[in-house]
Amino acid sequence: MIDWSHTALTIGVILGGALTLAGLLIWVERRLLGIWQERYGPNRLGPGGCLQSLADMIKIFTKEDWIPPFADKAVFVITPAIVVITALMSFAVIPIAPSFVVSDLNMGVMFFLAMSSLAAYSVIIGGWASNSKFAFLGSLRAIAQLLSYEVFMGLSLMGAVLLAGSFNLSDIVNAQQHQWFVVPQFFGFLGFFMAGLAEAHRTPFDMPEAEAELVAGYHSEYSGMKFGMFFVGEYLSILLLSAMTVILFFGGWHGPWLPPVVWFVLKMAGFIVLIILIRATWPRFRFDQLLSFGWKVVMPLALINLLVTGGVVLWKAG
């Protein structure tokens, strides 16, 4: 029988933790970008400026929530919810520590992939419903990018799944007790991380919302809390990406001395810092480069990786 109180507590902790961290991440990103550009970043409100997101939230709540008269109203309003819901749903299968997981689903990896493919809708119909040129261009780019990157995201995951012999995320973590999967699955890790950056619209792949060319891409027309939802959704997907990378390739909660939760959070923090560092450093791809890189380089790499891994697993099994 399911222990309801335990489940409810876990849901509360993970939901609250994810949303708080996403809010905090906005400040962390601005602060780190500031430090790497030899300035301070927001450092006024609270110790070190850590309450900046709170001030931003108050501001964004009190702003005018404008729906363009030319927009498709119902779809326009639903869209921001899809981003946050799909991102938060994916957190349901993330095992933070042994038995510290909302739903230890057999199909954890597939569930994550399903949610990330549904998240594409927010971008697509958000850009379409805004009924403006830049938003539409942004959503067209997003579709092409998501379709090509979804494919090898799944493919590069499968190497880890093959090694662990299970789609269950807890099983995958437990299989890495002695050796992290990043060693045998290095190319799988590269492919997954790249695809994850593309899914989260982060810097080398942030074509759908390229500020310099498309204003803000698919969320140009959004304002007030609807824009805030898109923003929080983006940071939730960064959290999700780093959590999934840690689980699939970096041994999840395993580590010496410290308790499992601390190890998990530490590893996640490392990946978040890496993602922000990438944003601070690398320029944006050109769009055709992005697609040809995806299909011609990473896709064959992921396929070869999968083939070799499958061969090795079969050979070891005898």
Binding site: L105, N106, M107, M110, F111, L113, A114, S117, L118, A120, Y121, I124, I125, W128, F136, S139, L140, I143, L146, L147, E150, G154
Partner: peptide, 26 residues
């Protein structure tokens, strides 16, 4: 049929319908 459910969302919901909407939008 958990596997079929996941595939239904990933392939039909996530890929094929996205392409449909893509074409209709254009």
């Amino acid at each position: 049929a958990q596997f079929a459910a996941a595939l239904e969302i990933i392939i039909y919901g996530g890929a094929i319908m996205v392409l449909f909407i893509f074409v209709v939008m254009l």
